[in-house]
Computed example of a mutant assay.
Amino acid sequence: MPPKPSEDQLSRRERQIMDAVYALKQATVTEVVEAIDDAPSRTTIRTLMRILEEKGHLKHKKQGREYLYLPTRARTRAGQSAMRRVLETFFGGSLEQAVATHLSDPSADLSTEELERIANLISQAKKEGKP
């Protein structure tokens, strides 16, 4: 049984690697190197992928001469965990403060449709009795 992914924050490079693996669904070291714009060496990527595996974020299987890496949990579950950490770290756990900060950012270009979907999500949460 692989270890549970740690709640430690990932480094910038580790996040880039995870983004590439999630985008590709599964990836070799070569594919990750090709997917990252300013990628470091293959050796560095291989080492970071091994570290991500040790942390429980990736698993691998043998494919020919290379390893094929897969995420250990769905992107949405990883995103939920990351969101909790961001809320705690930057907003004292307050989703309201996080949303207010985002909405007050002039570069946050939300469409009318996005705002309607957010309003509908809030309405649904109220109906379900979520605090």
Rank of each mutant, 00 (worst) to 15 (best):
G79I: 04
K62L: 08
N120G: 09
A125N: 11
L95S: 06
I17V: 04
Q124E: 07
E66Y: 11
A39K: 07
L52P: 01
A23Y: 00
G92Q: 07
E128G: 05
R84A: 12
E53Y: 07
S104W: 05
S6K: 11
R13H: 00
A125I: 06
S123Y: 12
P106M: 09
A98I: 09
R65H: 13
E54L: 03
K4I: 13
M18C: 00
S11G: 10
F91M: 09
E7Q: 10
L103Y: 03
A98F: 15
A23M: 07
V21A: 00
S41P: 06
E53L: 04
S104I: 05
L52Y: 06
A78Y: 14
I118E: 14
A100H: 14
D105A: 12
I36F: 03
S41I: 06
Q124F: 12
L121Q: 14
A82G: 10
R42Q: 14
R42T: 05
A78C: 06
L70G: 06
Q9W: 08
I17Y: 02
E66T: 15
T72F: 01
R13G: 01
A20V: 05
I122R: 13
G129V: 02
Y22C: 02
E31W: 03
E14N: 01
P3R: 15
S81D: 14
M49W: 13
N120S: 15
R85I: 10
K55P: 00
E31S: 11
T44R: 14
L10W: 01
F90Q: 07
T89Y: 07
A78W: 12
D19G: 04
R117A: 13
Q63V: 13
L121H: 15
A125F: 08
L58N: 01
K59D: 03
F90C: 02
K127F: 02
V86H: 09
Q16R: 01
M49S: 10
L58H: 04
D19A: 14
A20P: 00
A100L: 11
I45D: 08
G64M: 05
H102E: 15
A74K: 05
H60Q: 10
D38T: 06
G129P: 02
K25Q: 11
I36Q: 01
M49E: 08
V32P: 03
